[in-house]
């Protein structure tokens, strides 16, 4: 075997095998079982603790379509959880780029619920069970201003309704009425909420972050500044499982389906690392 050749393998070979590892499981899907991490369970518990009569769940999003595969299932799973518990859900977008995506998520999850609803009480109604506050730049402004008045900083919702005319907004005024803010992000917006909203107004904050940010947030979960989090696609899949186990809400479990490709890609990278090291040591012994 020519170890030297293996060591200096063309990057394009790696790229190609990687592409195959991702595509094949998508074409021939399998479903894998997994364990649930503590931080995910904590977030689930924190949402369980919201008092539906008095408080709401605020989902703050600042992801763009680029991290859709990771962040989108998180937003949907949270909405499902909120709807299943009849907790009013407020959603905002910190950046305009992601705003249309949230609209799509709301439509999809509302559609799932309402397709099975039998009465008006049973359905998810816009303005009563969910409000999409839309987008106000720059992000720091709404984060601070929601401590005073949510309708003040979001006078109109995403669809152009006056927010103060919506049923649920009459009792949800500011962070005092927010059970937990879950910031879904590819960046560090949960920390902005911790630094600017929690320090000043004491609101609970949770995170739904891409896997890349997760290591950064563990310290905050340990100190309790973050009540819990969904870390990456796996976190989203776990949350989907938790909601599904408890409430049987149905709907597509996007994150769970993607886990097969994930596994293949991870295993491939590990195989590459092993190959690289075997070749490296074989070369070293030779020289």
């Amino acid at each position: 075997m020519n170890w030297e050749r293996l060591l200096k393998i063309d990057r394009r070979v790696i790229f190609l095998t990687m592409a195959l590892a991702i595509i094949l499981p998508l074409l021939f899907p399998i479903r894998l079982t997994m364990g649930v991490q503590r931080v995910t369970r904590n977030l689930f518990q924190a949402v369980e603790a919201i008092d539906p009569a008095r408080q709401c769940l605020l989902i703050s999003t600042d992801y763009t379509p680029q991290t859709e595969p990771e962040n989108h299932p998180m937003a949907k799973a949270l909405m499902r959880h909120g709807f299943a518990r009849r907790v009013p859900v407020l959603v905002n977008a910190l950046y305009v780029e992601g705003a249309p995506l949230i609209d799509q998520a709301i439509t999809e999850v509302m559609g799932d619920f309402n397709a099975r609803a039998t009465s008006r009480e049973d359905s998810i109604l816009y303005g009563r069970d969910i409000v999409y506050l839309g987008w106000q730049p720059p992000p720091i402004v709404p984060i601070l201003a929601m401590g005073e008045s949510i309708t003040g900083i979001y006078p109109d919702d995403y669809y152009g309704n006056r927010t103060d005319s919506l049923e649920v907004m009459r009792r949800i005024r500011n962070y005092a009425d927010v059970g937990i803010v879950v910031a879904i992000t590819p960046l560090s917006s949960p920390l902005w909420y911790v630094q600017f909203a929690q320090t000043k107004y004491g609101v609970k904050v949770g995170a739904g972050c891409t896997a890349v940010c997760a290591p950064d947030f563990y310290p905050y979960c340990a100190t309790g500044q973050l009540s819990g989090m969904m870390a990456g696609m796996k976190g989203a899949a776990e949350y989907e499982e938790l909601v599904e186990q408890k409430y049987r809400t149905g709907g597509r479990l996007k994150a769970t389906e993607g886990m097969a490709s994930q596994s293949a890609a991870h295993v491939l990278i590990m195989v590459f690392v092993i190959l690289g090291n075997v070749a490296y040591f074989a070369m070293r012994r030779k020289s």
Binding site: I9, R11, I14, F15, M18, A19, I22, T64, P65, Q66, T67, E68, A265, L268, I269, F272, V273, L275, G276, N277, Y280, F281
Partner: peptide, 27 residues
Amino acid sequence: LIPLGASMFSLLAFYMASAAYRSFRAR
């Protein structure tokens, strides 16, 4: 812009594989 951005961003999956192969040597 979204497809362009998402494609650019997803190049990372490939670059991670090559970076791991290149640099994760037990030196």
